[in-house]
Amino acid sequence: MTPSVPTPLAARTPPLAEPSAWHEIALTVNGRPVTAQVESRLLLSDFLRDRLGLTGTHVGCEHGVCGACTVLVDDEPVRTCLTLAVQCGGAEIRTVEGLSPGDAPLTSVQRAFHECHGMQCGFCTPGFVMTATALTEQSDRPDKEQVANALSGHLCRCTGYRNIRRAVCQALDERFGE
């Protein structure tokens, strides 16, 4: 099978105001190359949502408290509301849309959230899922404390933490063996 070349993801470009504050960035989003003009002050969360149409990344508090906007930047979970898009040149970004694109089967993390009922309203879920995905990609199984520590960076206002933790543990069991 020949590897397919991913098609570039087109970014909507608004009219350029204050040209000096605009910069061209080239990065990879969900495996697809993206080149875009961004204003210096554009947050990564707004870049993903408004410019690339990837609205799976949710914006909650916009000052780094809630964790809803978490995505993976170079395989590490980060807050997109505390990251400037202009700082992401060369970065490889994965959002919740990239986990099981199109008709692809759900990832073990997504399936676990489904099976364990790891959500209620679902607003916080993309952030939790991305942090959980990073946990399953570690070389060693994170211990209970590390799981709790990682999840503590996310707020769920439906108070669904118990099932979220169950879901993450199920995905970790699947990845590392029980």
């Binding site: 780094g64 964790g67 978490t70 930047v73 590490e76 979970p77 980060v78 807050r79 505390l82 990251t83 942090t131 520590n149 990682a150 503590s152 960076g153």
Partner: peptide, 9 residues
Amino acid sequence: IGHPQIRNR
């Protein structure tokens, strides 16, 4: 400090 997501940046 904060959470792992913060310390990563």
